[in-house]
Design a protein around this nucleic acid. Sequence first.
DNA 1: ATGAAAGCGCTAACAG
DNA 2: CTGTTAGCGCTTTCAT
Lengths: 335, 335
Amino acid sequence: MSVGSAGERVTIYDVADAAKVSAATASKALNGSGRMTAETRDRIKRIALELGFRPNSLARSLTRKRSFTVGLLTNDTYGRFTLPVMAGISEGLIDHGVSVFLCTVEDNPELARIHVDAMLDKQIDGIIATGKRIDKPLPVDLSELPVPVVYALNTGPQNGVTFVPDDRQGAREAVQHLLSQGRSRIAHVTGPREFGTVRERASACSQVLEHAPQARLLDTLFGSWSERWGHEAVAQLWSRAETPDGVFCGNDQIARGVIDALRERGVDVPRDVSVVGFDNWEIVAKETRPPLTTIDMNLKELGRQAGLALVRMVNREEVVRGVTKLPCSLIVRSS
Amino acid sequence: MSVGSAGERVTIYDVADAAKVSAATASKALNGSGRMTAETRDRIKRIALELGFRPNSLARSLTRKRSFTVGLLTNDTYGRFTLPVMAGISEGLIDHGVSVFLCTVEDNPELARIHVDAMLDKQIDGIIATGKRIDKPLPVDLSELPVPVVYALNTGPQNGVTFVPDDRQGAREAVQHLLSQGRSRIAHVTGPREFGTVRERASACSQVLEHAPQARLLDTLFGSWSERWGHEAVAQLWSRAETPDGVFCGNDQIARGVIDALRERGVDVPRDVSVVGFDNWEIVAKETRPPLTTIDMNLKELGRQAGLALVRMVNREEVVRGVTKLPCSLIVRSS
DNA sequence: ATGAAAGCGCTAACAG
DNA sequence: CTGTTAGCGCTTTCAT
């Protein structure tokens, strides 16, 4: 029971006094360190509890040189990707008693610098860098910081510790699902070619189809991350002699555009054409008609792992350096 | 220039030594407190800069009893509302050097308690409580905390400090826009009746129309916050003898459903019917066809004000108690 | 097994 | 104007 009521905060001296021991002993008792009779330890613990003692983290951090606080830096204002990652980090770290500073820095280097400095001053134990786009780094160099850095969904330096979704595997899952539905004429409608993820997914997609005897890739269309582009792509694809019976889309918004366009054309999904999206952005995927089958990047798990890796680094334990790719999952709905 | 490179951190003693003054003097010089010749002050400042001195916030907070850190507690997992609010808070407070702990607590009272306690232990200066739904409080009682609390988008106790969007004013703007487009047969399609915001908006809507001589409210339909419900509502409305020529929707998703349904029925938006949404969720509003005219709740500004109010409370300055309603803005697009 | 003392880095009160 | 002293609340040797 943590009592937040009036009056002064109870310190370890209050506990020590009440237990008729020294502050040092109280400290040891409460931290499980030192050596003493189980009896005194228990007594001190009990008294601390009765008094509602809660250690002042600041004071503790000052001596321990560990603040049990990490910073999450992101350039994803919208939070589409940041929030699940954040949730995962928080979930993974709360057991370790660590809290998370969230800083949205957009693409402003000065702002980023200010936030990083502020956090460093507050003695954060480490930083997790994340963003909306894997190949667009944050507007600040984190490689020379006095604290460890983990990159999530955002590539860091060569030898950094980085976690990203396995785009290739995700794309493979998507295409294989299409094949398992008996589809043989596949089209891939995706985002801008400049995005690393776009190229990865596209390449994995064509690779799978090269090895599928009964199916093939009609075309890969690059565009923008929008519904509008989904419509346009359908217009293009359906103006040709041979139309696809399976479409793998680079994200859920494109997929939604595709599905809407198909319906408007009288093409039935999933009877005539199967569609698979990417992202599992529920707000989009669940509202498409029919609900969208898509790939989930498991961002929360990614955040969890990133957080855990960071505390290991803080503890100077071993971590895998380089890029760790985490598996995506196929979410089957009705499309 | 903040150098984060190797080696020990430089402390105020290093600065004092280098300047051949005492630590106390150095402290005063750097904080602009105390009294001394402008010359020594400048010299000390310069030396601090040269040495790359950055004060340890932990140590400072320990004596000052102010951590320049606040906590943001939310139950909005998705971040639809939390992130803009967060951005506003952060923007408003970064100048004051305060950082923000973000905690997503969903509806889990234990988790909430753990997070609150962790933050209290870290000596946060205050808490901002926010959420996805105004009338659904967070799963933890914040009224007895030893630090000030501000509620944003989430009502607190009677005499608390609360900021919410002005739903009534927003709704009025929406309806008046419809009227200004020459619409006279208005329908309101909104979310579940249990939501306070839903009732406010609906009531303001009917109130405006009661006082509009040339127009009237055909009906107010309560449903869910989904596109699906927008479709259904259109089906209901268009099965009657008299159909609306203006629809005010409780949120953008409903509006999108309405617009899609109308298009499918061959009703032209905005020629035959004007539609106004609520939320200005750009990802939805910009992708409707045509792009959606809607109400923006100015959540970022709301966050900014909430943050600023919190620091005023921390500084024991005056703040307005009770609920402060912040104006919404009409965003005119093409619907 | 327990406690005294020193110190984390900084600030504030009071002298000089 | 500047320096000395005394903490903030906790942890950690090192004695006892």
